[in-house]
Design a protein around this nucleic acid. Structure first.
Lengths: 198, 198
DNA sequence: TTTCAAATGTGACGTAGGTCACACAAGTTC
DNA sequence: GAACTTGTGTGACCTACGTCACATTTGAAA
């Protein structure tokens, strides 16, 4: 029980610190904001969103690592994002447009997240101008990162993209199996294997 | 002179209608909002942002068509976006993070745009909550579209992507030369040419 | 109307990366 | 510590697409 309380405190601190980099909320405002989040624990391999689901929430990663990915008709997997601590993830398309998920999200290693429902986010954005500012900022970041990745995908070969990824997120190397890295880079696992064995 | 006034009126109407789909502003609010935009006309081929420039503004396209693109070390061009009427464009990375442009923007056909400076956008977002909401919504759209394109680039071959593009934006076919379409799809112009001649 | 540049088509050939097949290593689960 | 499952390495072969070269068409400019 003591541990549970400790963890709740910690989750709150992690989110608070994250938000504080962008916006200033009073303690009361932040408490109110935080009260809309639900903490959740997932085991390695567990699925959080599956294609076809109704998507209600977005997820703030406290610890662990999630992946968001698409599975095509040939059952091939393409990874959109590895979500590390303090990253946000979901099927944002489904979430915003209130349609069924086409993107899956699941757990690469045991993870804890904070869930925020779409309705609550919109409510909070409406009630607290600063919160809306935060989410605008966050999506800006995501958008710019996504455009950079697009360019890299068109411009650079697989080896280049692999080195880029590891340079930017060295932690991934130890956490994420190589076939998932391949699925992020957009190459086959065989090709990736050959890349760094020559 | 009569024509000039007519055009200014029209620009205002176009933007107003565009915004009205997402947020409600009073006439006074919109007038104030609009007063921060500067209308500009560009000729076909003219450059709006060049790599290395300071980026001050984002651009709302009234009519015509712009492209935003990256040129790599081999002088190969990769197109991030074709900006059609009512679309927004800029080097958003440089704009938000106040760094020099790495992305170019220029005119595919004669075009008119409304410019909004970064400082003014932030000021307006701050002063009018609804405006912040609008820009959050807009970036959400862009982010989701960008993720879709990422997946398509990894998942689909050139022919598929070509058909996808024309299905979504048939107008491009008449406006945009094929080698630019190739630069958007991430294939060589020769490959694109062969695609639809067989 | 001529002239020049930009855009497009097309053949020959090269190559990065995909696919399939099978082997082996490393974790999990009972 | 068997018996699985999951991840990884590697060879042989295939294919989509790139590159280079040159021809042709279209459109702008003078």
């Amino acid at each position: 029980m003591a541990i549970l309380i400790f963890e709740i405190m910690e989750a709150k601190e992690i989110l608070k610190e994250h938000m504080a980099k962008i916006i200033q909320l009073t303690d009361e405002q932040f408490d109110y904001f935080f009260s809309h989040f639900k903490q959740q624990t997932y085991k390695k391999g567990q699925s959080i969103i599956s294609a076809g689901d109704k998507v209600e929430c977005e997820y703030f990663v406290l610890n662990g690592c999630l992946k968001s990915f698409y599975i095509n008709d040939d059952l091939k997997m393409f990874i959109l994002q590895f979500a590390m601590p303090t990253w946000w993830t979901s099927d944002f398309n489904a979430l915003y447009s209130n349609t069924r998920a086409t993107i899956n999200v699941d757990c690469i290693i045991d993870s804890e997240v904070l869930c925020l429902s779409n309705a609550d986010r919109e409510k909070l954005c409406n009630e607290i101008h600063q919160v809306e500012h935060f989410f605008r900022w966050r999506t800006n970041k995501g958008y710019v990162a996504s455009q950079k990745r697009l360019l890299s995908l068109m411009n650079n070969d697989a080896r280049h993209r692999y080195e880029e990824l590891l340079a930017q997120y060295p932690a991934l190397y130890n956490i994420v199996p190589k076939h998932l890295i391949a699925a992020y880079l957009g190459v086959s696992r065989e090709t990736l294997s050959r890349l760094y064995h020559s």
